[in-house]
Nucleic acid binder design. Structure first.
Length: 296
DNA sequence: GTTGAGCGTT
């Protein structure tokens, strides 16, 4: 008898994975947990009642419902599944209140002397309150300062005080302002993948995985090569990803900005979504009155 | 090896 596989996924909407069955038609729980660590069982949607049903589990062996697995997608059960998800959401929500009711923001520091270093910035701003991040923006090639940087304080009162006055830093008057290029507060699109902007080159995939796992299960970390100052992190739970969107998080002393990952640029629509007039206009230029939808 | 208003990432 040829090998049989059943289709298993973490969620009904996820892409299923094929898990091998045994010769007697059963499936070992260990076969499932090999692909889904921590799994403790399976369930499926009963086509008749539309209710979720548990798969019989006896001593680590999963038994087919009504003697056949059929073509259903089986969903993985985890121990205390709901509790675990709640904890993840709570942890993610906690980010938003961690710094108190008044969340601090990165401040842009304009007019820095060319020679001012991050240590100089930290020393100066620490006289106002606890500094949790400083950056001096530099030319990637020469390492020369661009004459501006960023600072973030632990407390909102400190931030208010710093914005309200001018600053003499290393012999020049500098201004601290709220940056204008901040993402809009509401970012749509429910995704499990987040865009991590302003990454530095010393951030490894392991660093990012280690950092983000505090918020929930991380299923993927992607850093484009060569270095492009951003990364993508995918969570198992979209609510965790969504809770982080809009945040400025500090990783390895650097403020990174979290936003929704845009869809991958892997089809003609997305490749030319900036083309003047859109795909229709492009199709016209290529000599077609209509662009066949099957080609999009 | 310069400079002096701006704005960090797709």
């Amino acid at each position: 008898m040829s090998e049989l596989y059943i289709r298993v996924a973490e969620d009904e909407n996820e892409e299923p994975m094929e898990i091998p069955s045994e010769d007697d038609g059963t499936v070992l729980l260990s076969s499932v947990s090999a692909q889904f660590p921590g799994a403790c069982g399976l369930r499926y949607r009963n086509p008749e009642s539309q209710c979720m049903r548990g798969v019989r589990l006896v001593e680590g062996v999963l038994h087919a419902p009504e003697s056949s697995w059929g073509n259903l997608v089986y969903v993985v059960n985890y121990p205390k599944d709901n509790k675990r998800k709640m904890e993840e959401i709570d942890a993610a929500s906690a980010v938003k209140v961690k710094r108190g009711f008044q969340k601090t923001s990165d401040l842009i520091v304009l007019g820095l002397p060319w020679k001012t270093t991050e240590q100089d910035l930290k020393d100066y701003f620490s006289t106002f309150g606890e500094v949790i991040m400083v950056q001096v923006k530099r030319d990637a090639k020469t390492g020369n300062s661009k004459g501006f940087g960023f600072v973030r304080f632990a407390d909102y009162e400190t931030q208010t005080k710093v914005i309200a006055q001018r600053h003499m830093i290393d012999g020049r008057w500098c201004d601290c302002k709220l940056p204008n290029s901040k993402a809009s507060p509401d970012e749509p699109m429910r995704s499990r993948k987040i865009f991590v902007g302003r990454c530095t080159e010393d951030m490894t995939t392991d660093d990012l995985r280690q950092y983000f796992m505090q918020y929930g299960e991380v299923t993927d970390v992607f850093i484009p090569k060569p270095f492009r100052a951003f990364a993508f992190v995918t969570f198992a739970d979209d609510q965790v990803a969504q809770a982080l969107c809009g945040e400025d998080l500090i990783i390895k002393g650097v403020s990174v900005h979290i936003s929704n990952a845009e869809p991958k640029h892997n089809n003609i629509h997305q490749l030319f979504h900036n083309f003047p007039g859109g795909v229709t206009s492009l199709a016209a230029m290529l000599g077609r009155s209509q662009y066949p939808s099957s080609h999009m």
